[in-house]
Simulated scan of single mutants.
Amino acid sequence: MPEYIVVIIRTVFAFFILLLLARILGKKQIAQLTFFDYITGITIGNMAAYLAVDRGIQIIDSVIGLLLFTILTLVIAFGAMKSTKFRKIVEGDPIILIRDGHVLENNLFKTKLTFDDLMMGLRNKNAFKLADVELAVLETSGKISVMKKTEFNPLTPKDIGLPVESEHTPSLIIIDGQILTKRLDYLGYTKEWLLGEVMKQGAKGVKDVFLAQIDSKGNVYVDLYNEKDKSPQIKQRPLLAAQLRKMQADLESFAIQTDDQAAKQMYYNQSKELQDLINKVNPYLK
């Protein structure tokens, strides 16, 4: 068998072995990786690379080495979760670099950080002045966490007793020109209303929209396929048609929600009258 075929086969095999082991080890954010995690990842990657290109290494030997290294990593991680003492041995402890606004030079020397390293870490947390910092801690991941002095913290609505409305997670309601109907219904909005909102932002219809997202206050962000077509000039006639359909849908919704039979009948009658009006003027609004 040609050598390049062997390399291809071994590389594909190493790739899927590495993918499987990564899934077994689980997800962990880069910012939370300890030095041990970092070294483990590099080692497993190197072992997989040798498996792919070094024909002098038996595949079974490499697989055994990878599996054993993965198992040991999992054992270490499990022990760190179950035992505080073991976790301190493996990961170490966070080290305070600044306390009460004063730099602890001995701890800085212990961690082998220079003042430049410290200042860079502070700047990454938007703390450019040492005078603004109350506490700075070097985490086991190597990142620096910063707590500013109270007077330098941003003012929040809670600080001044200002009531705020809770927000839910923004939701995508159009993807690649397709309305996510179930999500739109769950949020309590109609297709007619959505069409009006996207047309306000320059779309001729839903098919022109690549992505649309709605927040908890009903604000819609629209991203068109061709941004150059996104004109500030709204086409009034199609927009009016969409608004009329929205009003008609709202009347039907009011009729369904109310328990008052007289009001229910009134909403239905007005919805029917509006629908007749839409049918009459629709040819002129296209």
Score class of each variant (00 low, 15 high):
residue 180 L to K: 02
residue 205 G to Y: 03
residue 92 G to M: 02
residue 66 L to N: 01
residue 220 V to R: 00
residue 98 I to M: 02
residue 100 D to Q: 14
residue 182 K to I: 09
residue 239 L to P: 02
residue 185 D to H: 03
residue 182 K to A: 09
residue 155 L to S: 13
residue 105 E to W: 04
residue 181 T to S: 11
residue 76 I to P: 07
residue 182 K to L: 08
residue 28 K to Q: 06
residue 250 D to G: 05
residue 272 K to N: 10
residue 120 M to C: 14
residue 247 M to R: 14
residue 3 E to S: 06
residue 10 R to T: 00
residue 168 H to D: 14
residue 11 T to W: 11
residue 219 N to A: 04
residue 214 I to F: 00
residue 111 T to P: 07
residue 56 G to I: 11
residue 40 T to N: 12
residue 148 K to Q: 06
residue 86 F to Y: 10
residue 199 M to Y: 01
residue 49 A to Y: 08
residue 101 G to L: 09
residue 238 P to W: 09
residue 22 A to M: 15
residue 136 A to W: 01
residue 227 E to Y: 11
residue 224 L to W: 02
residue 100 D to Y: 14
residue 8 I to H: 14
residue 184 L to M: 00
residue 274 L to H: 10
residue 97 L to A: 05
residue 280 K to N: 11
residue 25 L to W: 08
residue 187 L to T: 01
residue 171 S to W: 03
residue 172 L to R: 13
residue 285 L to G: 04
residue 217 K to L: 09
residue 21 L to M: 11
residue 163 P to T: 02
residue 137 V to Q: 00
residue 130 L to T: 07
residue 217 K to S: 09
residue 266 M to F: 13
residue 14 A to E: 05
residue 243 Q to W: 08
residue 146 V to S: 05
residue 72 L to N: 10
residue 200 K to R: 11
residue 52 A to M: 11
residue 77 A to D: 15
residue 171 S to D: 02
residue 150 T to D: 13
residue 116 D to S: 08
residue 149 K to V: 04
residue 170 P to L: 04
residue 12 V to Y: 08
residue 252 E to P: 08
residue 153 N to E: 13
residue 8 I to K: 08
residue 260 D to R: 03
residue 136 A to M: 03
residue 105 E to T: 00
residue 157 P to Q: 01
residue 120 M to E: 13
residue 265 Q to F: 07
residue 203 A to Y: 00
residue 168 H to V: 12
residue 51 L to H: 04
residue 216 S to P: 00
residue 188 G to N: 04
residue 241 A to R: 11
